[in-house]
Structures are given as C-alpha cells and as structure tokens.
Design a protein around this nucleic acid. Structure first.
Lengths: 237, 237
DNA sequence: AAGTGGTCTAGACCACAAA
DNA sequence: TTGTGGTCTAGACCACTTA
C-alpha cells in the first residue's frame, strides 16, 4: 500500500489521460475531493500539487483547478530517464551494440567530472543505439568502481539502470544535465551513421544517488536530426 | 509581507550560497528549524521541499537534509526565462535589433501553434541578439492580438516580458518547451552570423498565462556553438 | 532507544472570484 | 455572500538510521 496522496495522484492522472476529466474543464473542488476520497484537504492538496508540477492541471485561486491540454506534445519527457525507458515511450525498438565494457584508470577529464582522486578505477561503457538500421546515439558511461564493483557486457546490453536499481538496490535520486552541440569526434564518425551531419548534440548527465553521492557520468551523443528535448516549466515566482 | 515558508526558503538559499550552510553538511533538523523560526514543522517542510526541488538540498530519511554542491554548473538555468533575464545571469550585454514588429494575419503554421482560428491577427516580432558584435540568436515571437492589443518597437527593443507583466499586468505561469536542431533557413542566414555552421538549435516555446490560456509562441534560433541548456531533474518515483 | 524525515489529520484564517 | 484555492498550526503515527 503506497501513500494516499500518490495513489490519488495516479488515479487522477489516469482520469485525465482517459479524459474522464477533460481539458479546460475544472476538477471537483479540494473539499469535494477530500470527501470523495475520505481524506483531509491537505492530502488532496499534495496530490493536486503533484499534478500541477507535472503539467496536468493549473490551479486558479478563487476558481478551481483546470485540466491542461496534453496534445501539444506526444512526448512529454522531461527530467531523468534512461535511454531504454525513453525508447519504450516512443514505441521504437532500438538495437544496442556494446563497444566497450571494461575497468580503466579514469582520465583527468573523467576524474574531474566524477569528483574523483587521480587515476581511480571506473567502469567505461560505450554503447551505440540503432533505430531501423541507423546508428543514431552513442552513449558513454563512467561509473565509479567503489559504488558498482561489477558490470558485465550482458548487463550493458540490456539496461544498466535496471541492474543498479533492482539487483544492487541503489536508488537513483537526481541528475544535473547539460545539453550542448559539438563537432563530431573521430569516435563519433566511426561508431555512428552521421550521414554528412556536421554536428552532434551532446547531453552530459551527472547522476546522483539517494544519499547525494555522485556516482555516474554519462555522455549521450545524438545525431542532430534525431534529437528532441521536451520540457514543462513553471515560472519561478 | 510574503509567505512564511517562502521567506524561510529564501533565507536558506542565501545561507547556502554564502556557505553559512556548506556543501555536504547537514542542515539543522526540521524540529530545530521549526523552533528557530517560531513556526510549525509543516511550514519548515514546505521551505525544505522548495530547496530540494531546486537542487539545493537532498533529504535523507532517518539522517537529515544535506546541502548539494553548487559548483558543477555556473549557469543553473532551467525552466522559463526570458532572453533578457538569461543574459543578465550570464553577465553579458547583448544588443537587440528589431527587424519586424507588426500585426499580421497568422499563417496556418502559427494558427496551429497558438490554437487560433484561421487568419486571426497576431503580433509578429522578429529580433536578432548580438554578443560582442556577433549576431547569435534570432527570436521570433507571435502573440495573439486578443490578449495583447498593442506592442511598440520600443517595447520589443527592451523587454516584452517586462511590458506584459508590469504594464499590462499579465501573469505568465508556465511554458512547454521543445528543443530541436534544424538546417538554417534563408532568414537565419540573412539575420545571423552563422560563420559556416550548418545547423541552428531551435527552442520552441509555448507560453501560458495564469488562467491556463496559451498566449504566445516563440522560436529562439541559436547558433549551435553558443547554445547551452542546463537542467536539474529529480527522478520520478 | 532516540532522533530524523514522511505522512496524515482537523481545523483555522486568509485572498480571491463570481454571483 | 459563498465557494474556491493558499497558508499555517499542533499533534499524531510511521519508517528509517544511528548509537
């Protein structure tokens, strides 16, 4: 049994997506919902705040909470998502090729990115992702050996996140992300089908655990025509 | 006098940025803070949740709330920011050139983006942004005439957001944003110093008011070497 | 066992919108 | 005036960490 407010949130997401609650209509008031769910108003408010944060509703003081149209984007991904989760949402079946999955002494650049002492050991995992025969994305992962003592090529082939969370019991909590555009490296040209494109989109991802330790640095290098980033943002007051 | 929890949040942000609370150290417990601020624990928790959402702290059950290092990015902008606010943060002084600021009948494409009936009137504002003599960004704004009856070239030259919020009293609430990479158009080549770059980064922005009405569509077209997007994201449960 | 953060409650008062 | 969402309180119980 999960938290009440999360359950209410999930149920309301369902209702919005199935259009039991339609776009531009008002939800029942907080007091009504509190009655319907046999709970207190503050608990309802926690659920509604989750809906607002994730772009499902807009709360309007004195009036009520109105449902925001979802159609503008078919692909409402913002935040921290593994490649596999993301591909699932897009309904595409990518093929992963593992080019490297070995322990190395971290280069100066990687030490810097992962806040490590010089020459500490890390896992280096390099994988290409293909969609309909085209190699579109190059993922380069670096994970501290202290936190993850072992990774196999098989794991790299399926889902590292699944292994870390379900097998090792690590809890991934937040990430800092940077998106820039770069010239392709030799490695990009070799491992991707760049088809004459002169740039790659690079997503640098710094991933942190539950206890706020930085444990993974990832570069996801995309062919520019296949890159898309979608975000929902509330204005800071 | 603002809300108590916002005041507490702001005060704690100050303390984190001035390193009264240092990275990797724990904050006082929620009960202690409630005592210090002469308030209830739930109010302290609202302030701490704001800090967590914005990447200042990580809460760890059973232990406490630890301060997250800020240094990883000098430019922690995520979300909805006008060009001018953004340039201010970067400490650069851009020059704005207004190429167009006129009423037009919206094209099919613009009607589609703004959810308008055919041929409704909108403001079209096209502006180039120069940094140290280089024209780097092309901003194309479309605003429904129904909501904003008048915009002058002078306003376009300074800050439209300032005009909308402070003069017209509109309250901008949230935005949906999409980032993609495109080939430059003729217009891009004409109005930007592309310096041989073969791509532009396009940020499509759908801006909504307080009452959840869509009122503005903006395309911000960047030279790829000058584009950078930074995000902080918590993993969805 | 003691201290921490996470959830939930029942009630109060406020600011705002609409009739 | 009524109903809405926004804030705040004081207290309860729980799950987890550490000693």
């Amino acid at each position: 049994m999960r938290n009440k407010y999360v359950l209410i949130y999930q149920e309301m997401v369902q209702k919005i997506e199935k259009e039991t609650f339609k776009a531009d209509e008002f939800l029942p008031s907080e007091n009504e919902l509190a009655g319907q769910y046999h709970t207190s108003r503050e608990t309802i408010r926690k659920a509604l705040n989750l809906l607002a944060q994730n772009g499902y509703i807009q709360k309007i003081r004195g009036k009520g909470s109105t449902v925001i149209a979802q159609n503008k984007f078919d692909f409402p991904v913002s935040g921290l998502v593994s490649f596999k989760e993301l591909a699932d949402k897009m309904g595409e079946k990518p093929i992963t090729t593992v080019h490297r999955c070995t322990k190395i002494n971290a280069s100066d650049y990687i030490c810097d990115q992962l806040d490590l002492e010089n020459n500490q050991e890390v896992w280096e995992i390099i994988r290409a992702r293909s969609f309909s025969g085209q190699r579109i994305i190059l993922d380069k992962d670096y994970v501290s050996l202290k936190i993850v003592p072992y990774i196999s090529e098989d794991i790299a082939k399926t889902s590292i996140y699944n292994y870390l969370e379900n097998e090792l019991g690590l809890i991934i909590s937040f990430a800092k992300k940077e998106i820039i555009v770069e010239e392709p490296t030799e490695e990009d040209r070799e491992l991707l089908d760049l088809e004459g494109f002169y740039n790659v989109v690079v997503i640098k991802n710094y991933v942190y655990l539950d206890d706020a330790t930085l444990f993974q640095y990832t570069e996801s290098r995309h062919r520019p025509d296949k890159f898309r980033f979608v975000d929902f943002a509330r204005r800071e007051r």
